[in-house]
Nucleic acid binder design. Sequence first.
DNA 1: CGCGGCCTTGAGTTTACTCAAGGGAGGTGG
DNA 2: CCACCTCCCTTGAGTAAACTCAAGGCCGCG
Lengths: 236, 236
Amino acid sequence: MNAVAPALEAVTARPRLPVHVPWPALLGSLSSDDAQALDALAATRSVAEGQTIATRGTAARQLIALLDGQAVCGWAQPDRGLSAERVVHGPQWLVLSAPLGEGRHHSDVVAQSRVLLAELPVDPLRALAARRPMLSLRFMDTLAREVGRLDTRLHELMHKDAGARLAAWLCAQLQGSSQVVLRLAERKRDIASQLGMTPETLSRMMRSLSERGLIAVSGYTVRVLDPDALHGLAGT
Amino acid sequence: MNAVAPALEAVTARPRLPVHVPWPALLGSLSSDDAQALDALAATRSVAEGQTIATRGTAARQLIALLDGQAVCGWAQPDRGLSAERVVHGPQWLVLSAPLGEGRHHSDVVAQSRVLLAELPVDPLRALAARRPMLSLRFMDTLAREVGRLDTRLHELMHKDAGARLAAWLCAQLQGSSQVVLRLAERKRDIASQLGMTPETLSRMMRSLSERGLIAVSGYTVRVLDPDALHGLAGT
DNA sequence: CGCGGCCTTGAGTTTACTCAAGGGAGGTGG
DNA sequence: CCACCTCCCTTGAGTAAACTCAAGGCCGCG
């Protein structure tokens, strides 16, 4: 078991930590029966900062949920580091579709802090899902939402310029916290990378927005001064 | 029923045409029981060229499969027409994740030829899937593959330049037909749009590739002369 | 205090876009 | 049968957006 990342075994050892997995946060509301069945299948493990969790193109045999910590999915290039396509904060799925689909990881995944993972081997999970219809439905819904998010990002990348993408991203962040003050939880270079621009361009766009009075930036704190104008700039 | 597009009813009338729906092409291998259950749920209808099939942001209550013809998903802008994000040839899913996820259409969808659709209302489908585990699994797999495709496109759009994207697209087309001669099935402007570039840029890239001897272009026919070099240009 | 990341800023360059004009294929009507 | 129209693709010239490269400043840490 855990054949995916044998090299990590030595480093991170300790399988099946006695940890509570917050399935509702990952899959939506679940019967306690279903949750227990998942618990029985899941193995948790901890991974140190900087360690590789998955490698693009290698076999993906387990679904992986990030329970705690921060990890980044993206593209590792020799001596350019890893450019972030998605930054994940627990609890959230880290690897959901690859084992269910083509069976190969789409991205390189690296821990950005010490993280706690829960892993579900896909074959037993399939067998379980075949017996528990509501569980399959929850996975269907979760996957469908993921498609929606990707569609949106693809759309923005194709049709919006850097300023609009940043504005849209800020608006999206705003929804979550329902406040006007944002604390950026990621390095700016990772934000830039997710938005498909360079750190330099992000920096200039931030400055442009603050010069126009839409936001006020101070380090990793962003205060949104004019949410409506920001929404307008984002192009709905 | 068919409340999604009441305006079309008058035009396209005839619900439940007696048509065979090729479920295996849409969902993978299926028991005949499952296929029959889906048949019982599905309604087919025909839509004329140029008609709107779905509108971004409106309620999505049915899964829609394109059985025959060609349709385009994208973004309709007033007097810029519709810019293609995805061109679909039957048989293939046209609207799969939106009803299962947020319940709103992600894109505008327009028929590019006379098309034949099969529609599955999502609520009865959910009920059916709850009773038929293998069916849910097929939907899970189909959605997971869709996520994989979107991930790939997102990755290419973020990290590859126009030339590499075109090369990658040509390589992908090549897999399907396993030949060296491609017949483009879509307008070049739609290909360009899907690749996130303008028609002018696509034209120049095509010329650049043929000047370098990688392909030979004649109208809508492309002969691939150097598949390896093309693969290299595509960046794996 | 010095060091290493990270962000910022500026200058110069590249890529891809916009705008405008021209040519080919297909369809329609005289 | 030809003239004409329309739609689409192509090509060129100029422009604008974003990237690269290089330098400088800030912050936290040893």
